[in-house]
Design a protein around this nucleic acid. Structure first.
Lengths: 345, 345
DNA sequence: ACGCGTTACGTTACCGGTAACTTAATCCTT
DNA sequence: AAGGATTAAGTTACCGGTAACGTAACGCGT
């Protein structure tokens, strides 16, 4: 009864061509507006396309041409951290506007997950990959090198990237924050963040921070790294734990603003005044900062712009334009009012 | 000099086969562990796979078999709203653990974007689609019907879905919240949310809310719908605008907790006490609620679970299991302490 | 020693497009 | 009006796998 279609019941180009009484090559040319056909033929083919509801099979096109697809694989550690949600949004918007599709990979901060995801996604012949972080497993690195497609490592700026890199220097950013807090007179500075099996940007940042604090004559940094998401509640209970272990801490630096906010709330419940009793510094200048009663001391990083920049580098490379291998997106210290003000000289 | 590879410089199965001195069919069988080869041959092929760094081209497999891929298209309105970030995380984790890949589509709350994305993603022969919302353009609906693949509409429960649906009934949820606030004695209730060209779950929820408020003898709801993201700052300035226009409002219902938090902060800056001067109710029971000094009156919806449930329905259907077409994930009112307590009878 | 089943492969065709080439008809140009 | 150029097609081969089928060699029971 029904017109014959293939096994998956999809209309193929041959069917359109047959319906229009032309060869599939002609139909193919019409669909790609390649020219070499009469107006009459074009209209006829397009009418049949419409009538049959033909949708091209891009798999076949890519496969036939031995091309890469329009997919771009994007790996993100987790979406619970608003920072990465923003980065992803920036990437996908820009990529989408250039006709590319994002294939998502949530790596849960582990190299193993990342490696598995890379292997799978490469089998789909993606046009390129955007990866969060610069630490990859040995096998992953090998696959990436052999893939022969553009790769952008984001977030943690990599001066010798696999291919391209965009982000900020987390060591420097951490160092600047450390120096600022020391300059504000703090000496017993604590840190509350999260950690995972793998080193990441937060690790690098903390290293820079410690260096500044110690170099500036500050006391040894009391660190607390939770095995949790870098979100509000971990900031709350992390603060509780840190202060229980080190009651002398006079200022806490958090992995991000969400955690810092959690810390602020903990302080409030204990009647600790900020910044007179304790200083609080966050990271990322997340949207919530805009509505907080006190301006949160933080480090502004343009996350959406970072994502867009990564997508732009990818697109630039794919269209053959010369693209710098390394792009520093910059950061900016937000002095805020949740730490004591530094002496003005 | 170099071993010959194809144009894209990738190692193909034929090359592996040749290196191992077998036909590519045998190599194919080894890779799929299909049997029908000797141990010696298996080891030889696997050794060459390793040596040459062969990665299969899944495009070819899918294409050859006239199968669908392991891609699942997932459309999400935006990631600035934490709710959707959580849903996406739930989906991708579950999908990933079953060997599927998420192809992301950010629709920016417009049917046009959604339609374009659907057209593109269908051309990649996805295994299925997960779409946020139940309102689609006519053309999109047609394409979806013809696609012949599993489709899950999430978030806004659809009793007559295209295929499957999981979420909550937003009308009922809005109604319950409205009834609760009326029960708390509020009569001049305002609403602050966002709106877009297309009706969505928030629209439905607001309709249910209004019905309850009006039916309960409350005054006409003062609504304010911003063209913005449902986030902290819009909650802040939306509150400012609403109160400027309607100073008599005694309680505000927000589109989500982030906006409600923005509203709370605005109230604080104006010296308005919550809940004695003004009641505040949010929606979603987002993570930030866990660290707020006052328990925010809200509606708990299990976002992560919702995402996982959507992925499970998809996977169930793909593996041929019987799957219900409709699944209500449920919601739960969080009475909180940011509204006056209702009279206990 | 014969026949039959099994094992371990190889061969062929095909999926749905497109590049590259071929062909037939029309269109100028001189 | 002859011949080269152009237009509007059609034909063939191929991308990298896999289903389906073919086949040679071996084992084994009688």
């Amino acid at each position: 009864m029904a017109e014959k279609t293939n096994k998956t019941n999809k209309v193929s180009l041959s069917q359109v061509a047959k319906a229009a009484g032309v060869s599939k090559m002609t139909a193919s040319r019409v669909l790609r507006a390649e020219g070499g056909y009469s107006d009459k033929t074009r209209d006829l083919v397009m009418q049949k396309v419409d009538q049959l509801g033909y949708l091209p099979n891009r798999l076949a096109t890519v496969f036939a041409g031995d091309q890469t697809s329009t997919f771009v694989g994007v790996s993100i550690p987790d979406l619970g951290n608003e920072v990465f949600a923003q980065v992803l949004e920036g990437i996908d918007r820009k990529l989408g506007s250039f006709g590319h599709q994002t294939v998502l990979g949530l790596t849960q901060h582990t190299q193993k997950e990342e490696e598995d995801w890379i292997r799978t996604v490469l089998s789909w012949q993606p046009a390129g990959l955007i990866l969060t972080g610069r630490f990859h497993s040995a096998r992953a690195t090998e696959m990436l090198r052999n893939a022969g497609i553009p790769i952008v490592e984001i977030w943690d700026l990599n001066s010798s990237p696999l291919d391209m890199s965009v982000g900020i220097n987390h060591f420097d950013a951490g160092f600047d924050m450390g120096r600022y807090l020391v300059g504000c007179g703090y000496r017993q500075i604590g840190y509350v963040g999260t950690s995972h099996d793998t080193a990441n940007a937060a690790t690098t940042r903390l290293a820079g921070f410690c260096k500044a604090v110690e170099g500036g004559g500050g006391g040894v940094t009391k660190q607390l790294c939770l095995h949790d998401t870098a979100a509000y509640y971990p900031g709350f209970y992390g603060t509780e734990q840190l202060l229980a272990a080190h009651p002398d801490v006079d200022c806490i630096f958090y992995q991000n603003d969400a955690m810092a906010f959690g810390g602020l709330q903990f302080a409030a419940t204990k009647g600790l005044k900020v910044p007179s009793d304790i200083g609080v510094a966050g990271w990322g200048d997340l949207p919530i900062a805009a509505v907080m009663p006190q301006r949160l001391t933080s480090m502004h990083v343009p996350h959406l712009k970072l994502g867009q920049a990564a997508a732009e580098m990818m697109i630039g490379r794919l269209s053959g334009e010369p693209v710098p291998t390394c792009r520093d997106i910059g950061f900016k210290l937000i002095p805020g009012s949740t730490v004591r003000h530094p002496d003005l000289r």
